[in-house]
């Protein structure tokens, strides 16, 4: 069985600053990490490897320095890594990114594709499901538990606002996962040694049989006009006092606005 885990190298938002003039992330000097949700996807793949014969390939699209994220994924138990990197991919929105990833996954081959539910820098949660659409395979989002995996079938729990759904799908399938799925492991010494010497395969536009018009900025229907922080207009009120007093006045306030 082949599993592809899609990961994204993102700036560590714990350390991030926003440029007040352009409202964009200031990436300079900010440490890069693997998108935290993707670590849960990788952990799920590595745990499946412990149960059955599985080859786990980790895939990322990004500049050459994204290799660091791939090597870290190897140290956490992935078998091999593919870097999708080409000048033609620059400026991709979620549509073009999904198209490119889908082309790469078709080239690599996969029974299960695992993604984090969203990246902590863009927060769109679009790339996973869109990639499944381009691959023309089913997808299940917000997976909180993998119940069982068979050769042609998978059964998972999908996290919902109130409880969860049990969803069964044929393979191949794409899953996006939430952090409730597992606790990602620490790297192993063997994994780190392996990650330092392993070869990272790089794929460019010519390797994945992609239509150039669908790649990068040219293939991106999204045009960013302006980025801004929405102004908060809601009325605010701070409730003070002891715990009892706070509860009392909160109840009063909620009743006043007919919430209760």
């Amino acid at each position: 069985m082949k599993i592809v885990v899609c990961i994204k190298q993102v700036p560590d938002t714990a350390e991030i600053k926003i440029n007040p003039e352009t409202n964009t992330l200031m990436r300079e000097g900010v440490p890069s990490i693997i998108n935290p949700f993707d670590l849960h996807a990788l952990e799920a793949a590595v745990r499946l490897k412990e149960q059955r014969t599985v080859r786990v390939t980790v895939l990322t699209m990004g500049p050459p320095q994204a290799e660091g994220a791939l090597r870290e994924a190897i140290s956490l138990g992935a078998d091999d890594a593919v870097l999708l990197s080409d000048r033609a991919f620059a400026g991709s929105d979620t549509w073009a990114t999904s198209y490119t990833l889908a082309k790469a996954i078709s080239t690599i081959g996969a029974d299960i594709v695992l993604c984090g539910k969203q990246a902590i820098d863009g927060d769109t949660a679009q790339v996973g499901p869109e990639t499944a659409e381009f691959l023309d395979i089913p997808h299940i989002s917000y997976v909180r538990k993998i119940e069982s995996v068979e050769d042609t079938m998978i059964k998972v729990q999908r996290l919902m606002d109130e409880g969860y759904d049990v969803v069964q799908s044929s393979l191949p399938v794409l899953l996006t996962v939430v952090k409730e799925l597992n606790i990602p492991r620490m790297p192993s010494i063997r994994g780190i040694l392996q990650s330092k010497k392993c070869e990272i395969r790089t794929l460019g536009k010519d390797d994945i049989n992609a239509d150039e018009n669908d790649l990068g900025l040219k293939g991106s229907p999204t045009q960013v006009k302006n980025i801004f922080a929405p102004e908060s207009t809601a009325e605010k009120k701070m409730i003070e006092g002891t715990a009892e007093e706070k509860v009392e006045s909160l109840l009063g306030e909620l009743k006043k606005i007919k919430c209760l």
Binding site: R185, M186, P187, S188, I189, R190, G191
Partner: peptide, 20 residues
């Protein structure tokens, strides 16, 4: 379990017995 999974218990065991 975390320590074991990270190979810390394998450090000074010879490679022929599954160590590092």
């Amino acid at each position: 379990r975390t320590i074991a999974q990270s190979d810390m218990m394998a450090i000074n065991i010879p490679t022929e017995y599954g160590g590092l």
